[in-house]
Structures are given as structure tokens and as C-alpha cells.
């Protein structure tokens, strides 16, 4: 089943209480290749592996059909730093 950018985005916002989410569908519309940026308080104090595990767990069902998935997981503080 193909997924839309907004479907993935909403799921990440709800599941991780994310303050900022960017989802880019890199599959030319087939809905199976995504790149995401997630900014959430939930990542505070967690190493990168644990952060990615949170995202993976949330998208467990979707990742069975999404064949390429790239993620950046930032705390609000890191996100502010990166923007400036």
C-alpha cells in the first residue's frame, strides 16, 4: 500500500508529539521511499539509536512496505541551532 507524505507526517506528529516534521516522498509518487526530519521533546537525553528506534517502532507497519527510509531526529534545541 502506498503512503502519502501527509499520512506519515501526521503519524509522527501524533505519535511523538513532534513540534516540527518534514516528510519528503522521494519515490516519484509510488509511496515507498521517504526521507523525514522529526523534531520532538521525546528525543531529549536519548542517544541516536534510541531516537531512531522510537521512529521505527511508530512506523512498524509502514516500514514493511516502505523500502527506503532515511531519518533525522532532533531535539527542539538542536533544531534551533541547525536553523541558525
Amino acid at each position: 500500500m502506498p503512503y502519502s507524505e501527509s499520512y506519515i507526517k501526521n503519524k509522527l506528529i501524533e505519535g511523538l508529539n513532534a513540534s516540527h516534521v518534514e516528510v519528503i516522498d522521494q519515490s516519484d509518487g509510488c509511496g515507498a521511499k521517504f526521507s523525514v526530519v522529526v523534531v520532538s521533546d521525546a528525543f531529549e537525553g536519548k542517544p541516536l539509536l534510541q531516537r531512531h528506534r522510537l521512529v521505527n517502532a511508530l512506523l512498524e507497519e509502514e516500514l514493511k512496505t516502505i523500502h527506503a527510509f532515511s531519518q533525522k531526529t532532533l531535539t527542539p534545541e538542536q533544531w534551533e541551532k541547525q536553523k541558525s
Binding site: 541516536l48 539509536l49 531512531h52 528506534r53 521505527n56 516500514l63 527510509f69 532515511s70 531519518q71
Partner: peptide, 25 residues
């Protein structure tokens, strides 16, 4: 590893992560 994607990298028998994590490291 309970990790859904390939590649997977191990250092000293410990799972480190996939491509995004290695790139960030």
C-alpha cells in the same frame, strides 16, 4: 536487532545502527 532496514553496522558485536546513524557519527 529488531531493526527494520539494511544496512546494519556492528562494532565489537554491538549493533550501532543503519546508514543515517553511521553518517551522523
Amino acid at each position: 536487532t529488531n531493526w527494520p532496514t539494511i544496512p546494519q553496522v556492528f562494532i565489537n558485536g554491538e549493533f550501532v545502527g543503519g546508514c543515517d546513524i553511521l553518517l551522523e557519527m
